[in-house]
Design a protein around this nucleic acid. Structure first.
Lengths: 124, 124
DNA sequence: TTTTTAATAAGAATTATTCTTGATTAAATG
DNA sequence: CATTTAATCAAGAATAATTCTTATTAAAAA
C-alpha cells in the first residue's frame, strides 16, 4: 500500500459522484501533485482487482468508480449526467431473476438504468 | 431507406453473435464492397435511433448490435467472448424490481451478466 | 550494503468512434 | 423533363479514453 494507492482510494471512497479516472486524477493532485494519470489508471485497476472499488460503465462513456460494495444498480440521468446508486426492492437469487443457460457460472451482474432524475424530470 | 441501410440492417438482423461495427462492416462489404466504415457507423446509429436495433455495451468493449427487441439481458462469456440473450424468469414492473428516486423517469434498463457459458465453464 | 522486485512518471501508441469535407444520390418542385 | 434542394455517402483526419513502453525510483530481500 503506497501513498498513491492510499490517496486514490481515499478520493474514490469519499466521492459521492462516481468520478472517472480523470476526475480522480484532478482530485488526487491536490495531495500528490507529482502523480501521473497512468498511475491513477494503474491504481484504479489494482483496487478494482482487489474488490475494494467497483467499475461502472454506462454506454461507452469513460469508466467511473464506485466505493459502494453492496449489491446495487446505477441510475444515469440523461439530463444532468449524474449517476446515483439504486437498490433492489427485494433481494432475490440470480436464478429467480434470470433464466440462465444450464451449467453456466456468473461472476457479476451490472444493471444500468437510464432516464431523468427528479430535478431534471420536473424541468421538462 | 437506402441500399446501405437495408444491407446493414439485414446483416444485424441475421447475425446471432451480436456483431460490433467492424464486424458488420466486414460482412456488408460482401454485398456492397464500396461501403465505408463511417457509413456503417452512421447507419447503425440511425437504426438504433429508430429503435430497429439495440446497442449493447459490456464494459468499454466496442459497442455491439442486437436485433432482438424483446425485453432481455445479455450474458457475456469471459471464456469465449460470446454474448447471448437471457430472459427474465418473470415479467415484473420496474418499480417492483428497483427502488427509484421519487419523480424520476426511466427510459431504459440494461442488464449485463458476466461469467462462463456452459462450454467454457466445463473446460475449467 | 548489494541485489532483486515492484511501483511510478512521462509520454508515445492504440483503438473505437466522431467529425469534416467534398462528391453522389435521391426527392421535390417548377 | 430539368433544376433545385436536401440528404446520404466515402474517405480520411481528428478525438478521447485507455494501454503500453521505458526509464527511474522506492521498497524488500539477501
Amino acid at each position: 500500500m503506497t501513498a498513491q494507492r492510499r490517496e486514490v482510494y481515499e478520493v474514490v471512497a469519499t466521492s459521492t459522484d462516481h468520478p472517472c479516472a480523470g476526475m480522480v486524477y484532478d482530485r488526487v493532485k491536490d495531495s500528490i501533485p507529482s502523480i501521473s494519470l497512468a498511475t491513477v489508471y494503474n491504481v484504479l485497476e489494482t483496487l478494482s482487482g482487489c474488490g475494494l472499488i467497483k467499475q461502472i460503465n454506462v454506454d461507452r462513456d469513460a469508466t467511473r468508480y464506485c466505493p459502494n460494495l453492496e449489491d446495487h444498480g446505477h441510475f444515469y440521468c440523461e439530463g444532468c449526467g449524474n449517476v446515483t446508486d439504486v437498490y433492489r426492492q427485494a433481494e432475490r437469487a440470480l436464478d429467480e431473476r434470470w433464466r440462465l443457460p444450464e451449467g453456466s457460472t456468473v461472476t457479476s451482474v451490472d444493471v444500468a438504468l437510464k432516464g431523468r432524475c427528479p430535478a431534471c424530470a420536473s424541468v421538462n
